[in-house]
Computed example of a mutant assay.
Amino acid sequence: MKFRPCIDIHNGKVKQIVGGSLTDRGNQATENFVSDLDAAWYASKYKNDGLTGGHIILLNPESSEYYAADVAQAMAALKAYPGGLQIGGGIHPGNAMSFLEAGASHVIVTSYVFKDGSIHFDNLENLCRVVGRNHLVLDVSCRRKGDDYYIVTDRWQKFTSVKMNLETLERLAPYCDEFLIHAVDVEGRASGIEKPLAALLGSFQARPVTYAGGVASFEDLRILKELGMNWVDVTIGSALDLFGGPVAYDRVKNLGADDEVAL
């Protein structure tokens, strides 16, 4: 298990939000942290610390008046750390190559592939042709409904009918290089990880997997490492001291490189 850093951009600023609170109407979200520093500062820090495989997420839709400001922040971050960061948020064949050419290692996709309640394999195949499987990360972020997890889209606002399970991951694996999974019900809440989801991800090792959501302590990281079979990587947002939380970045950044650090 290693630490994957993040840069979330909303209304033109680096933020940490409560994931389930994000709405398109009025560009609203419940904010945990709003940074005075720009995305390029965080990208440079991650580069200097040798962290790879992190991601930028654009949290406004293309229709938002803030989208251009989000993209400007993202482009500056990609310039600061070329090849070191992935990018997601409204990715489709019309804009994916512009981000890769700007320095993103991968594009991260949800809503273009998961829409109208189902998986659109024609869209997935089209995107693979445009960017190449090795540059594609599928964000299969999910929320619980009853006893199961379901993939959610459109900034986590809409449920699909697609269950998040081993069968789904196995069907999708041939089309992507990695998976990113936000546990949306606990995203931004620092309330502990989704243990059943972590165990599910640990049982799937056909592709690299990054988990995000609910990490609040090193005990949470220990549990994730155990349930994830030391295979599942982790992103920490609101709980990280870089974003105003209690978890020490200077300790977390060495996860995987020095397991004695942490757990």
Rank of each mutant, 00 (worst) to 15 (best):
K253N: 09
Q73V: 09
E260T: 12
N95Q: 11
D38T: 07
I7W: 05
T30H: 12
A216K: 15
V247C: 09
A72E: 14
N60K: 03
A29T: 05
I7N: 05
F204Q: 06
W156G: 00
L124K: 05
S35A: 15
G117C: 03
G192V: 02
D259Y: 10
D233V: 06
Y149L: 12
A199I: 02
G146E: 06
G88V: 07
E31A: 13
A262C: 11
S35L: 13
L255R: 02
L166C: 06
H106M: 10
T160E: 00
D220M: 08
P208D: 01
Y211P: 01
L227R: 00
I193W: 08
L127S: 05
G202V: 01
T153D: 01
G188Y: 06
P5T: 11
F159R: 03
C176F: 04
Y81V: 04
N48M: 13
Y175H: 09
Y67M: 05
G54A: 09
F243E: 08
R207W: 02
D233G: 05
S21C: 12
D154Y: 10
R129H: 11
V186Q: 11
P5D: 12
V247Q: 03
Y112M: 03
K163V: 14
I7L: 12
G228Y: 07
D185E: 01
V107R: 06
G88D: 04
G213W: 08
A72K: 14
E125M: 11
Q205H: 13
W231G: 06
G256A: 03
G256N: 04
K253F: 06
G237A: 15
K115T: 14
K45D: 04
V130R: 07
M97Y: 00
V107N: 03
R207N: 02
H182A: 07
L138A: 07
